[in-house]
Write a protein that binds this DNA or RNA. Sequence first.
DNA 1: CTCTTTTTGGCAACCGATTGACAATGCAGT
DNA 2: ACTGCATTGTCAATCGGTTGCCAAAAAGAG
Lengths: 352, 352
Amino acid sequence: MTSPGEQNPGSAAKRKAGTNGAATIYDIAKLAGVNPSTVSRALTTPGRINERTEAKIRAAAAELNYRVNPFARALPTGRTKMIALMVADITNPMFFDVVRGAEEAAAEVGYTLVMTESQESAQREAASVERIMPMVDGVVLVSTRLPDDRIAALHAEKPIVTMNRFVPGVGSVVPDVTPGINQTIEHLANLGHKSIAYLAGPGPSWMSRHRWDILLAAAVKRGMNIVEMGPNEPTQEGGQRLLTRVRASGVTAVVAYNDLMAIGLLREAAAQDVAVPYQVSIVGFDDIFGTDFTTPAITTVKTPLLELGRLAVQRLLAEVEDPESTTSDGLAVISGLATSLVVRGSTGPAAK
Amino acid sequence: MTSPGEQNPGSAAKRKAGTNGAATIYDIAKLAGVNPSTVSRALTTPGRINERTEAKIRAAAAELNYRVNPFARALPTGRTKMIALMVADITNPMFFDVVRGAEEAAAEVGYTLVMTESQESAQREAASVERIMPMVDGVVLVSTRLPDDRIAALHAEKPIVTMNRFVPGVGSVVPDVTPGINQTIEHLANLGHKSIAYLAGPGPSWMSRHRWDILLAAAVKRGMNIVEMGPNEPTQEGGQRLLTRVRASGVTAVVAYNDLMAIGLLREAAAQDVAVPYQVSIVGFDDIFGTDFTTPAITTVKTPLLELGRLAVQRLLAEVEDPESTTSDGLAVISGLATSLVVRGSTGPAAK
DNA sequence: CTCTTTTTGGCAACCGATTGACAATGCAGT
DNA sequence: ACTGCATTGTCAATCGGTTGCCAAAAAGAG
């Protein structure tokens, strides 16, 4: 049918079939009059080869528009210069800045970032990670739902860094929620709140429990009553569904696991004519896109997401580059990434 | 220092160095008592091998927890089962659903999605694409800023599909903006608006011009006056900065290139006590996360982003799987993905 | 019970780069 | 001129699959 030489009308499908048309080190070697291995050395080990020869080779490479074949390189070295970022739900704005930070940190050192999402399912997450592992030099698990032992098992295969989750023996990047939470309690106490609720996130979320632990301690220390409601889906719907329970509980303020839930609750309150902050004050977490244009705007604990993303990748790459040294650092993993309260309109004087 | 056998305390860094510990087809071959090539065939060409042998091989593979090394496979075949999605700005919520749709479509058929962003810079985009091209089987360019000839050049190397951009000879996925725009004009006309403005996006944005073209035609047909303002950054700031010009122009309604700009303009209006929609009506584009919780909520032309993402990937994969047939389909590329107006609070009767 | 045809499995040559071992070359010191 | 030592470049094996070609085995035909 497609006899060679035949015009293939109306289409740019003349791409070569099996092989990429791309130039190889063999082509360069021929052009520069040296051995392929010399080309390889010239390009990967500057200094190993005579300066003039190297220049000649580089010139030839440039002329042929050479780019290494990442797979050919990956095969003997086992290194791919790709890392994976696993997120729970791409459509949660919380991940924007994380992804952005991670992308930046990876690109800076010539790594490529591969993103996958688990769609909030531990099972799908496991499958995704399985599939991606052989392709990458390491994985950042953001807000993972995987159990500790599973993570440890993965870590035995390849470098792993978790974010918003602490796993013993595995590099972790976790923001310091204490300052933000202390400020929140302080703020609410100053407004006269004596009884508050924490709207928990998903059950398997380490971060949700972590925030609860710190919040509980801070509230108790301040002599407040506090209750936990949950677990809940970390979405607008999850927050929405809680309004009835919140009102029934008699608390005057709530702290939601994340901003999405806070937004959901806020909107449901508006829908049911519950005045915020007059009847109930709402505090969110993370300070995502949109928290400042609800009515009222949401008071929230700002998390340095971009920096977290950057740092997670940097730690991962440190482990990738030198597996010996950096692998896990025991307990001092809670890095100094501080959170802080951003006060907006959704908090006010306690009702009654 | 690290004498073999020594306990490496407090760390799981016993990962094997050069090679992955992973099982290969050679291990399977040995275990099943056949030739490696037989294993390869059994696993990749069902039917080519005797059923019983194949079963034995599969059992052995399962026992060894075998997973193909994607790079070893990619080397001879040139196929990687990865596709790239290039977006302009990860932090623009517009891309959420696009990414989600693309991820789904890719995952369904066992492909892995690699994401990169150009950070709104044609130069960075070119560099990113260059870097990613050799790793993937094809690329989806979303809202690309690259010039036509550059895209055509890329298309000569690998399958490419553009989204929100039409390039002759290259597969394109573009929503049908006409119904949404017609409804918008109709809606505004019914509200008594006679003079409106279009707040353009970035200069190189094909989609911004496209929307303008359709909008212009629709407005003229309806006997309205319309002006274009721009180009502008497609961000909240871009919208914010336009308030003065909008007011000066005397128009009673504006249509923004995207929701981010609409939100920016709306917030700036609130900040300067310009009443929306009483003094000026605002219409956005896309219906992104957050448009429904501004005050007032934003009237916007909803774009089926998830479907666009899905479709872009599906078209790309069709071309990947069969380069002959699917490459480019001339002009009938504007697929039937219809837009429609979502009326909310930011539009109202024309001022005066 | 041959002879042909179809299955089935093995051999070996790739894909493109990396890298240890070694040879050739150049240069200095004696 | 001769040895010693660097420096520079070459050879060949290797990473883990894929695949064209062929031979052995099995099935079918006459």
